[in-house]
Design a protein around this nucleic acid. Structure first.
Length: 269
DNA sequence: CGTGGGACCTGAACGC
DNA sequence: TGCGTTCAGGTCCCAC
């Protein structure tokens, strides 16, 4: 579910309840969430580790420990929250990490795709990721593009190109830039590349400010259980058949690489 | 290198 | 009401 703006919002919301706390151990109900380690190894590894800081890299939540890192990828339906130990566990809670203040960091995930990684080195997980779209300069973006030939939509979903974009913000940034999802990188003019760069940054920045996109009940919520507000701003994502907000042409849907792409056939060329 | 398909999972929405 | 199909915010692995 979550893409960069949602992951960023969740990470910020975990700072107050987690920074400075020490983990006491872990209970794992679905071992795949922490594979390849066994639940025992994972629990022993996390016990006694103190949380230094919380950040984000691509779609990973990065919890920096006094030794090593705990990374969380929420995939489609993962959620994190901190709750008092005596509060009953909600359904689909697959891993519970004990804290030294009587609370727990709880990981829930209906579809069981999300993963927790306890590693010594950050690069174990993040070495295959491209740059952060909000940290990159135009010049670096141009260099990145120069080496690519694929469709724009596929590029945005490729985490090795830029880290953090997903289906919603890929479609929204292409609309904002007036670019068709099937265009290939090698056909872009200098003006179009700059427009695309600006659109990616603008869309992500606005979405973070609005604390992400909650599409339907039971979807994304932040670490405090609050929904995001960006759904009201969506121009094309999930609006198949509805009028384009700019020109009123019906928004079209197209399947690319197995994922749906939403775009305005009039505004995006 | 790029693309398409299947796998991994479960639930909601929709058609008949 | 009930059943089957399709779709979902993601990523990995394989074949071509």
């Amino acid at each position: 579910m979550p893409e960069l703006p949602e992951v960023e919002t969740i990470a910020r919301g975990l700072q107050v309840p987690l920074v400075g706390r020490t983990f006491t151990g872990a209970t794992v109900a679905w071992p795949r969430t922490i594979a390849p380690q066994s639940p025992d190894e994972f629990s022993r590894g996390i016990a006694g580790r103190r949380v230094r800081s919380i950040g984000r890299r691509g779609k990973y939540i990065v919890i920096t420990l006094d030794q090593g890192y705990l990374l969380v990828h929420l995939m489609m339906t993962g959620r994190l929250k901190v709750a008092p130990s005596d509060q009953p566990l909600e359904r689909y809670t697959h891993t519970v990490l004990g804290l030294d203040n009587g609370c727990q960091l709880r990981f829930r995930d209906v579809r069981k795709f999300g993963r927790l990684y306890l590693v010594e080195e950050l690069s174990t997980i993040t070495s295959k990721l491209g740059p952060e779209p909000l940290a990159i300069q135009l010049e670096e973006f141009e260099e990145l593009l120069a080496r690519r030939s694929g469709r724009l939509k596929s590029l945005l979903l490729n985490q090795g190109f830029l880290a953090g974009m997903g289906n919603i913000y890929a479609d929204e940034s292409l609309f904002q830039a007036g670019l068709h999802p099937q265009r290939t990188a090698d056909t872009l003019t200098a003006v179009e590349r700059e427009r695309w760069y600006g659109a990616i940054q603008a869309v992500l920045t606005r979405a973070i400010r609005m604390r992400g996109t909650t599409l339907r009940d039971g979807g994304y919520v932040d670490a405090q259980g609050e929904a995001g507000d960006f759904q009201s701003q969506l121009a094309v994502y999930g609006r198949t058949g509805e009028p384009c907000r700019r020109c009123a042409t019906p928004v079209q849907r197209l399947v690319l690489g197995g994922r749906s792409s939403h775009f305005c056939p009039q505004c995006q060329t």
